[in-house]
Nucleic acid binder design. Structure first.
Lengths: 149, 149
DNA sequence: TATTAATTACTAGCAAGCTAATTATGTTCA
DNA sequence: TGAACATAATTAGCTTGCTAGTAATTAATA
């Protein structure tokens, strides 16, 4: 029947799924001052302490200016602190506050719940294929971007 | 080796791929005043003329306030016009300008190029699986969202 | 050592996306 | 008819994301 090929729709489906996922998670956690990005950040920070902003941005795969504003919000909400780095007065290391630590603890189960809600019925095989495709897209985007420089 | 399960990383990979795709396309077309969202909008408008904003938002699967600002920008760049709807003074129908029409024509090949660059090496089978997964995520997000209301 | 390079975080400015609330207009129905 | 309800576009306010450019500091090198 008259369905467009997967190739034709996949990029659209990609951004759609990404938006819907974010909207759902954000709606669930907004009362605590959380968002998907803040949750991701808290998770990373609880696993790898004492990252500088540069390192944290790399870990999250976002640009440093994006992180600056993300951290501004998180600092305002009392999740994190910016601390100085001895030996480099330019850098700041990001530390969880006790409150941030506590919230980070709760996020693990929220993330689990999100995965359960969004991925039930998805076979392990499809999941593997999807991850392959997503990684290809990411890698190719990077390559194409560099070529045009 | 010690890689996290696909289930654990897929949502992260999803938002990453989406961001990289957008960044690449935006970088490619920014000189013409285009963006990925504007391009998508132009494509829809060239296929289905005379949509109202409400209908267009539905077609694009975005909220109407998001569309308002999207159209503001596109109007400013001369891609589209807001025209009145006879019989309903609340509504506006969106029309391509001649220039918008011309740009819409160019977008088809830009989209093709994007798909080529991002999806080479991806098997049709993986593509199908990925689309299945993405649609499941989108549908489940909608369901979960409605449940919590 | 002094100058040049690179690096770190930041600001500014833009666009996209969301929700909530508003205004104007249409529709329904008592 | 009038009152209540529904709908279309908008505004306001928030977050995320990007690029480009800046100030301060550090590293490298002539």
């Amino acid at each position: 029947m008259s369905e467009a090929s997967f190739r034709d729709v996949i990029l659209d489906e990609l951004s759609r799924a990404s938006r819907k996922m974010r909207a759902l998670f954000d709606a669930r956690v907004k009362e605590r001052g959380l968002t998907l990005s803040r949750a991701r950040t808290l998770l990373v920070l609880s696993k790898i302490p004492d990252l500088t902003q540069r390192e944290l941005a790399e870990e999250l795969d976002i640009e440093t200016p994006t992180l600056v504003r993300l951290l501004d919000g998180m600092e305002k909400h009392g999740f994190i602190e910016r601390l100085s780095v001895e030996g480099d007065r330019r850098a700041k290391r990001i530390a969880l506050t006790p409150y941030g630590e506590q919230v980070a603890g709760e996020i693990a189960s929220l993330a689990k719940e999100l995965r359960r809600d969004l991925l039930t019925g998805v076979s392990e095989k499809d999941m593997a294929a999807a991850v392959r495709v997503l990684r290809t897209i990411t890698a190719s985007a990077l390559t194409s971007c560099r070529e045009s420089v």
